[in-house]
């Protein structure tokens, strides 16, 4: 209904549509562009008391550093305040969370998609309820036992917790992807001589990659974007990026510190930009996978 009818649309409506879209794109994108630009300025520019034109032209930055752009914020965050360590921890956490989630999720999602028994249905409903649990309520249940078991503060604990919290969502998503693969395929394989697991591994998984990639993106996002779990369960030296940024804010009085946080925020946003750039199609298909059927 789009292009064919475009010429029939009244000019006024067309103008309205274009204006609206331009406005939305500005709303969606400008905060990011503004912050990226500002992260190369000094605090007096990015938080200018005089005029926000300073942030664009870098008046104070010129005065303080001699150039219109400065990497001081980045240097301060990454080197002085050890943000590289947090970034490294984030890499470990997200890679582990994504791979473990997908391994458990594909096995479980496959079983749920092929069972057809009542209990499979109830497991899915339980997963839906679990999916709705605010993460911080679960975290408040972890802390005391984790202190007792002496496993608080280290990366593996957070990884396992994030995997578990991620399972309901992963199961639902993979379950719906598996449902879209015809049952004939695994049944052929089993008649041809495979066990259930061989059928899963040799026949189903090779055609399941799009679903796995999409679900993996969302697992990655969950691990990457998490604040509640990592902030509460990691000790200061094991922090990942997001809780690290939050701890920058704690010492906000020091001059320059805010710019460290701004630089860190921009650094943490870059991987997400790249992700959307390359996997836009998969993200869109993942968001709609559950929806279009339900």
């Amino acid at each position: 209904m789009s292009e064919a009818m475009a010429h029939k649309r009244p000019a006024l409506l067309n103008t309205f549509i274009y204006d609206f879209i331009v406005l939305w794109v500005i709303l969606a994108a400008v905060p990011f562009l503004w912050t990226v630009w500002g992260s190369f300025k000094v605090e007096a520019d990015f938080f200018s008391r005089e005029s926000w034109w300073n942030a664009i032209f870098g008046t104070a930055t010129m005065r303080e550093t001699g150039a219109a752009f400065t990497g001081d914020g980045y240097y301060g965050a990454w080197i002085t305040r050890d943000f590289w360590k947090a970034a490294f921890n984030t890499i470990i956490v997200t890679i582990c969370v994504t791979t473990i989630s997908l391994t458990l999720g594909t096995l479980g999602g496959y079983a749920l998609a092929r069972s057809g028994k009542n209990y499979a249905f109830w497991i899915l409903i339980a997963a839906l309820v679990f999916r709705a649990m605010p993460h911080i309520t679960l975290v408040s249940g972890y802390l005391l036992p984790f202190f007792q078991l002496n496993i608080w503060g280290v990366l593996p604990t957070s990884i396992i917790v994030l995997v578990a919290i991620n399972q309901p969502f992963t199961l639902w998503m993979l379950h719906s992807f598996f449902l879209s693969i015809p049952k004939d395929l695994d049944e052929s394989a089993m008649v041809d001589g495979c066990t259930r697991f061989q059928a899963f591994r040799l026949v189903i998984m090779p055609v399941m990659w799009p679903g796995v990639v999409t679900t993996g993106l969302f697992s990655f996002l969950l691990g990457y974007n998490d604040f509640a779990v990592t902030a509460m369960l990691l000790s200061a030296e094991n922090q990942t990026m997001v809780p690290k940024i939050s701890s920058f804010l704690g010492s906000i009085q020091e001059t320059g510190n805010v710019m460290f946080a701004v630089a860190a925020v921009v650094s943490a946003t870059v991987p997400l930009f790249i992700l959307v750039l390359f996997f836009q199609r998969q993200i869109v298909s993942g968001l709609t996978a559950g929806a279009v059927k339900g």
Binding site: V25, F32, V242, S246, L272, V276, Q280, I283
Partner: peptide, 12 residues
């Protein structure tokens, strides 16, 4: 561009 506000870490 529309995806960015959703994909962004909530705290960030």
């Amino acid at each position: 561009f529309s995806l960015l506000p959703m994909i962004i870490t909530p705290l960030i």
